[in-house]
Design a protein around this nucleic acid. Structure first.
Lengths: 353, 353
DNA sequence: CCAAGGTGATTAATCGTTTAATCAACCATA
DNA sequence: TATGGTTGATTAAACGATTAATCACCTTGG
């Protein structure tokens, strides 16, 4: 291949064609006034010489780096890869590179990470904030991916509606007594989902929410959730607020000899990798991360454009749009309660004979 | 805060102190000859004025961007977040920013992603290659994270030794008939782990390897692995080559009413998020990703330094070091076989009376 | 007293692109 | 034939840091 060559510069192209470098710049950017024929010749020469624009020079001159930062919270979040992938793809399509910064859980680290990105001169950044934290103005355009209830330039899934969908799904299967499993009351996302679930299940359903984080302070991290007892207590479904909790519930139930979904249904959120490979595969809600990423990048691009139009205000425009819909993925971890199954079976028996 | 200010430049510092900008540069970089007192004054002024070096200008002048690229394979790999985090941390410590590039599984995408990074002028890149792919010379320093059996400038865990550790652990629990569960024969990492497991279990153990990928071509993706039948067949342990497979095995066994670890043990690799929260928590091997990342960044830094010392060869130095050790994390998914438990219980009963 | 050497600072060029300002033709209109 | 407007290209000045070359000054030794 022709790799390894010293990449040609505009000046070289200009010299090769006997024109000025300004003309080359104009031709390639399509900005100034260049005759069509010369423009074509320049483009061709650029191709032949293997011209690669110098991002550094361009950044120096224009003050824009064409790089955005991606700040992520506790990276242990298994949804992270998908978000990162989606953002990277959307950013690449919009001509941006993506610089990552991990905030390692700590809120101070989040600020530090943002600072590092700013120093590196990113044009803007997309932040998935640590739950319960607020991002201050850093003089750089920011877009936030969190929950629609977060103020600011936010884009996110419609977590509440997702909850509603799942709630309706469970209700339609006949579940009346449902345990909602969440982790932290601090999380906007989790609260939205819980709210949605309650709404979707309807007012005649009996549901309680188990906040795992609180349970763990007394019983230790990774403690059993005591779900078998709940089943004995009449609960027929466990709706977790994200798949990791769903998995925890599923395995605990199975270990205690409870059949899923025959004796109890289990559902989650986010459709993480394992959700489809465990046995039974988990019913969950998938986020449209590609769309979220696109919107985030687009929103960010908008703010960036505005900002260098009016180089006055850092202008963190509030363009909080509608939430991106989530799609329900029904698998085998949810089903009718055993009683309805039995009833239906009896019904079928009667019918068939 | 003092954010939002126009960041001061070297020229401004120089003007404020009535010295030349070259002196400021020398003082701050500690390179040229500057008197100690002037140097101190300059440093102080830099602080007060809130000097932030322009990466763009520096990059333009020196040709080095202080950014490295991180190329990842199928991003769905749940280990990815941890790798990314570790790399980011190590890179930040070494003064590098990390630009991500996702190769979305496709091998062509991998090449494209690498190309994009090169165009952006990264100083080097760290590649976690798609399994079975080889990276060509792109005229940019590269470090690879894969398996010690990969040629090139590679750093990785000692997967084989990890397998040996797990094999010994299982053997010590009395397991003689073990099913190894892997996905693809193409993967160096998986092959290393399988080899290690076989070695660790010893020659008198009976073990077979189940290649899930091959099974799925005939039975469909996500098919049952038929482990219950294996248990009936005398298998007492299932050693998966990564945690996702272990999870799949665990849930399948539990669904079929087999008690883990009483009737069968299950083990994995990588200690992914869920491994500790499922019930029972999974025995696994943890990679020392922090160390791997450090070494990768360090190795890359070395190659970069060499390259701009001798601006001749692209010099992808072969500095294939020893594998980084993995650590065995014993949890509740592995235990003695039921028979030995029964035997031990009988033994105990006899002893106590 | 002069040459040699060291020290601390400055000068000026350079990296590659962008862009405002300028200029030379050329055509059309008064 | 001047005047004015277009068109197509050039000039030259940035952007901010680095660095080789130079310079002025001071010390030291012969």
């Amino acid at each position: 291949m022709s790799v390894g060559r010293t990449p040609a510069t505009m000046t070289e192209i200009a010299a090769a064609l006997g024109v000025s470098s300004a003309t080359v710049s104009n031709a390639l950017s399509g900005k100034g006034r260049v005759s069509a024929e010369l423009s074509a010749k320049i483009r061709q020469a650029a191709d032949e010489l293997g011209y690669v624009p110098s991002h550094a020079a361009r950044a120096l001159r224009t003050g824009r780096t064409a790089v955005i930062g991606l700040v992520l919270p506790d990276i242990s979040n298994p949804l992270f890869p998908q978000i990162a992938q989606a953002i990277e793809q959307a950013a690449a399509a919009a001509g941006y590179g993506v610089l990552i910064a991990d905030s390692r859980g700590e809120i101070a680290q989040q600020t530090a990470a943002i600072g590092r990105l700013v120093e590196r001169g990113v044009d803007g950044m997309i932040v998935v904030p640590r739950r319960g934290s607020r991002i201050g103005d850093v003089g750089t355009p920011i877009a936030i991916i969190d929950s629609p209830s977060t103020p600011g330039n936010t884009v996110s899934s419609d977590h509440r509606d997702g909850g509603v969908q799942m709630g309706r799904h469970l209700a339609s299967l006949g579940h009346q007594k449902v345990l909602l499993i969440a982790n932290s009351r601090q999380s906007n996302v989790q609260n939205d989902r819980v709210g949605g679930l309650e709404a979707g299940l309807g007012s005649d359903a009996c549901c309680e929410t188990l906040w795992v984080e609180e349970m763990e302070v007394s019983q230790g991290v990774g403690c059993a959730l005591g779900l078998a007892a709940r089943v004995a207590d009449g609960y027929t479904a466990f709706a977790a607020v994200y798949d990791l909790l769903a998995l925890r519930a599923l395995t605990e139930l199975q270990r205690d000899g409870i059949d899923v979904p025959l004796q109890a249904s289990v559902s989650g959120f986010d459709d993480l990798v394992w959700s489809s490979v465990v046995m039974p595969p988990i019913t969950t809600l998938r986020q449209n991360l590609a769309m979220i990423a696109e919107r985030a990048v687009e929103a960010l691009g908008g703010v960036i454009a505005e900002r260098d139009a009016a180089t006055r205000k850092p202008a963190s425009v509030e363009r909080n749009g509608a939430g991106v819909p989530m799609t329900l993925v029904i698998r085998q971890s949810t089903g009718p309660t055993m009683y309805s199954v039995v009833a239906a079976a009896a019904h079928a028996r009667k019918d068939s004979r």
